[in-house]
Design a binder for these strands. Structure first.
Length: 616
RNA sequence: GCCGUCAUAGUUCAAUGGAUAGAACAGUCCCGUCCUAAGGGAUAGAUGUAGGUUCGAUUCCUGCUGACGGCACCA
C-alpha cells in the first residue's frame, strides 16, 4: 500500500507540473489516529523552493489525489501544513493480520539483500576477546551489537557469516606468563604443576591467569613509573633504569618465545591457558546465543603479516611501508592519516601489522561483498589507517572491508582496567542479573529447572536491551550499583509482554476460542476498545518496514524502540478489556490480533538476540 | 598541541530539515473477584551557550563552554 501511495504521488507531481519546481517528498512517517478511528495513517510532507505555501500545496495535492483510486486507501485529507494523511482501509489492515498468522516466524523477512538471485554475502567480525584476559562487559556489548547487526542483515535475505578474531599473542600474554613467574606458587622447571588442575571450576582456572596478568602488568608498570619518577629516562622519555631494562628484556623474550614457540615450558603453560580461556568464552557465547562460523587468531595472522609487510617495505619491496628507527611503519601522513608502526624494533608485528595478515585470511574463508568489523569507537582512527592500507595492498577486496564502531560501555567509576582489576566480567554481571531474576520469580509455581532457564534468558535480555535500546555509536553508562532495569523500557518488559500474550492464547485454547480473521467483515468493534486495538494493529502492520529501515541504517535500536511501542500498545489493550470471552462475538478476532502480536514480538526480539521464556 | 565523537526532562534514552520534541525510571495521585501488577491510568517536567543558513533547525554551518576517545613500537 505504501508503494501504491508513492506511485500516486509521483503521478500527481507530474500532472501538476511540479517536477521543474523542485518539489520533494521529504518525509514519510506513520501518524496515529484520533480516538475511535481505525485506519492506519501515513503522512507526507511536501517541501518546495517555489512560492506556494506548504498548506496550499497540500490542499492542491489532496484535490488531485482524490481523483485517483489508490488500493487499500479509502480516505485522504490534509493534515496540516504540508501534511497529507492517507487512511488505510479496514480490509487492508485485516489482510496484514491474516498474513502475520500465516507466515509466523517468517513474517518480516524480505529479499532486499538478494542481488540478481544471489544473496549478498556479508561478513561480521565482532566480540574479539583476548585469551588470557577477562571477557568483560565491554565484550558483552560488542557481542550484543555485532550479533544483532548480523541477525538484522539476515532478515533482509543476505548470507551472513560470523567471525571472531582473538588476540592470543602479544604483550598481554607475555605479561601474563611473566606474572605467573612472580607468583609464590611458581617454581622453575615445575612446568604446569603450580597451575590449578582440571578439577577446579573453569572460571577459577581462568581467573588464575587473570590474576597473573594483573600481577605482571602492575609490577611492570610500577618499575617503569619508578624509573621515570627518578628521572631515569632516555632522550625519547622512555624509562631506562637498570631494573626496568632488565624486566623489559625478560618480557620481550617471553613475548618472542610465545610468537615463535621456542620455549617448551612456556608452550605448555600457554596452550593450557589459551584452551581454558577459549572454553570459558564458548560457555558465554552459548548463553548469549552467538554461534561463530570461524575463529581467527593473532598468532596465525602474525606469520602472514610479517611476510606481506616485508614484501612492501622500502628498500626491498614496493614503497608502501618504510623503515624508521628500526621499526617498519606506514607513513600515514601521505594519505592524510597518521603514521603507525607495523613491525616493532624487536621484529614482532603490532596490532596494526597483524591486521594485514588477517584480512586475506578472512577473505579467503568467505569471499564477502561486504566485510564488516565491529569494534568500539576508540579504534576509529586505527581502522581509518588499517582500511587505507588494505585498499592499497589488496585491490580485489580491500575496498569491500568496512568498520562499524559502537560506543564504550563505561562505569560510573570511570574506565575499566583489567590491570588494576577494576573490571566487571561478563560472567559476573550475568550471574548477578540471574540472581535478581530468580528473586523476582520466587513466588512463581514452576519447576526449578525452568526457573533457572528463564532467569538466564531474562538476565541476558536485560543486558542486551540496555545496549540495544540506544544508537550504537553512543557510550552506555553502566552503574553497577543501580544495576539494570527489569521494568519499563527494558528487555524483561518485552519478554513479560510476550509471556502475557502467550498466556492469553493458552486461555483461548482452553476455552475453545479459535482465532479468526474475517477480511470481508469490516464492522467496527465498540469504541472504547477500538482505539487501543487499532493502535496495536497499526504497529503490527509496520513491522516489515521497521526491519528494513533498521537494517539499512544499521541501527538495531530502531527495532528496540518499535518493540517497546508495540508491547506498550498491547499491554494497554490488555488492561482495557477482557480478550478471551466465550460469549463475546469479537473475541475470535481479538485473539487473532494477540496471536499476531505474539508472533511479531517474538520475531523482533529474535533480531535483538533475545529469547522468550514460556513463563516468567 | 592536532584530529575525531558527543551535549534533549532530576536520571537513562528516542525523534531521514517539518505536525503538539516521544518513552522509561525517579516524584505525586489512582487501578487487586479478571487472560501473570516485571502491568495499566492520571499528573508534573527538557533541546548547553552565542550567532548563521532556511518558509521552517533538536537536526545543517561557525564561535564558545563542557565531557569522552585517538595521536610510533599496547591491543
Amino acid at each position: 500500500m505504501r508503494h501504491a501511495i508513492k506511485q500516486a504521488l509521483t503521478t500527481v507531481v507530474e500532472e501538476l507540473g511540479y517536477k521543474d519546481l523542485n518539489l520533494d517528498i521529504v518525509l514519510e512517517r506513520p501518524a496515529d489516529m484520533a480516538k475511535g478511528d481505525f485506519a492506519t495513517s501515513i503522512a507526507l510532507v511536501l517541501a518546495k523552493k517555489a512560492s506556494k505555501s506548504p498548506l496550499a500545496l497540500a490542499i492542491e495535492f489532496v484535490d488531485k489525489l482524490k481523483e485517483k483510486q489508490i488500493s487499500s486507501i479509502d480516505k485522504i485529507e490534509v493534515a496540516g501544513p504540508g501534511f497529507i494523511n492517507f487512511y488505510v482501509t479496514r480490509k487492508a489492515t485485516k489482510e496484514v493480520i491474516a498474513k502475520i498468522l500465516e507466515e509466523g516466524d517468517l513474517f518480516g523477512k524480505s529479499k532486499n539483500l538478494v542481488i540478481g538471485g544471489a544473496p549478498k554475502k556479508v561478513l561480521y567480525e565482532y566480540t574479539d576477546p583476548n585469551p588470557f584476559k577477562v571477557f568483560h562487559i565491554g565484550h558483552l556489548m560488542a557481542n550484543t551489537i555485532g550479533e544483532s547487526l548480523a541477525r538484522l542483515t539476515e532478515t533482509q535475505g543476505a548470507e551472513v557469516k560470523r567471525f571472531c578474531y582473538q588476540g592470543d599473542v602479544g604483550r598481554h600474554v607475555a605479561l601474563t606468563i611473566w606474572g605467573l613467574r612472580l607468583m609464590p606458587e611458581y617454581k622453575e622447571g615445575n612446568h604446569i604443576g603450580f597451575l590449578p588442575d582440571e578439577s577446579v571450576p573453569l572460571s577459577e582456572r581462568v581467573a588464575f591467569f587473570g590474576k597473573a596478568y594483573a600481577l605482571g602488568a602492575t609490577k611492570y608498570k610500577e618499575v617503569e613509573d619508578a624509573s621515570k619518577k627518578a628521572g631515569q629516562v632516555n632522550e625519547a622519555g622512555l624509562a631506562n633504569s637498570e631494573e626496568f631494562l632488565k624486566i623489559d628484556e625478560e618480557v620481550q623474550n617471553i613475548n618472542k618465545a610465545i610468537y615463535f614457540r621456542t620455549d617448551p615450558e612456556i608452550n605448555e603453560i600457554y596452550d593450557l591457558g589459551k584452551e581454558w580461556s577459549l572454553q570459558s568464552f564458548e560457555e558465554l557465547y552459548q548463553l548469549l546465543g552467538t554461534k561463530f562460523d570461524r575463529y581467527f587468531f593473532e598468532s596465525a595472522a602474525s606469520i602472514d603479516a610479517l611476510n606481506i609487510i616485508k614484501e612492501h617495505t622500502v628498500p626491498e619491496g614496493k614503497k608502501l611501508f618504510e623503515e624508521s628507527n628500526g621499526a617498519v611503519i606506514f607513513p600515514g601522513e601521505k594519505y592524510g592519516l597518521h603514521t603507525r608502526v607495523l613491525i616493532t624494533r624487536q621484529g614482532l608485528p603490532t596490532y596494526d601489522g597483524k591486521e594485514i595478515g588477517l584480512a586475506p585470511m578472512k577473505y579467503g574463508a568467505f569471499q564477502y561483498d561486504d566485510g564488516i568489523t565491529v569494534t568500539a569507537n576508540e579504534q576509529d582512527d586505527f581502522f581509518k589507517v588499517s582500511l587505507c592500507i588494505l585498499r592499497e595492498l589488496f585491490p580485489e577486496f580491500g575496498s569491500k572491508a568496512r568498520h562499524i564502531s559502537h560506543g564504550m560501555l563505561r562505569l560510573t567509576t570511570g574506565k575499566m582496567s583489567s590491570r588494576t582489576g577494576d573490571v566487571i566480567t561478563g560472567e559476573s554481571l550475568i550471574a548477578s542479573m540471574i540472581d535478581l531474576a530468580l528473586s523476582k520469580m520466587k513466588e512463581r509455581d514452576m519447576p526449578d529447572e525452568d526457573k533457572k532457564k528463564a532467569a538466564e534468558m531474562i538476565a541476558v535480555a536485560a543486558i542486551k536491551y540496555t545496549v540495544l535500546r540506544q544508537a550504537i555509536g553512543k557510550d552506555v553508562v553502566f552503574d553497577p550499583e543501580k544495576s539494570l532495569s527489569f521494568e519499563g523500557d527494558s528487555g524483561p518488559y518485552l519478554q513479560y509482554s510476550c509471556v502475557r500474550a502467550k498466556s492469553v492464547l493458552d486461555k483461548a485454547q482452553r476455552e475453545g476460542i479459535i482465532e479468526m480473521v474475517d477480511v470481508s467483515d469490516i464492522s467496527v468493534i465498540p469504541s472504547e476498545t477500538s482505539a487501543k486495538l487499532g493502535r496495536l494493529e497499526n504497529l503490527l502492520v509496520r513491522f516489515p518496514e521497521t526491519l528494513e529501515k533498521a537494517q539499512s541504517e544499521e541501527s538495531p535500536h530502531v527495532v528496540a524502540t518499535y518493540l517497546m511501542e508495540l508491547a506498550a500498545a498491547f499491554n494497554s489493550f490488555y488492561a482495557s478489556v477482557p480478550i478471551v470471552q466465550i460469549d463475546d462475538f469479537e473475541s475470535r478476532y481479538k485473539v487473532a490480533v494477540v496471536r499476531a502480536f505474539h508472533i511479531v514480538l517474538k520475531n523482533g526480539l529474535k533480531v535483538l538476540g533475545i529469547q522468550v521464556p514460556l513463563k516468567m
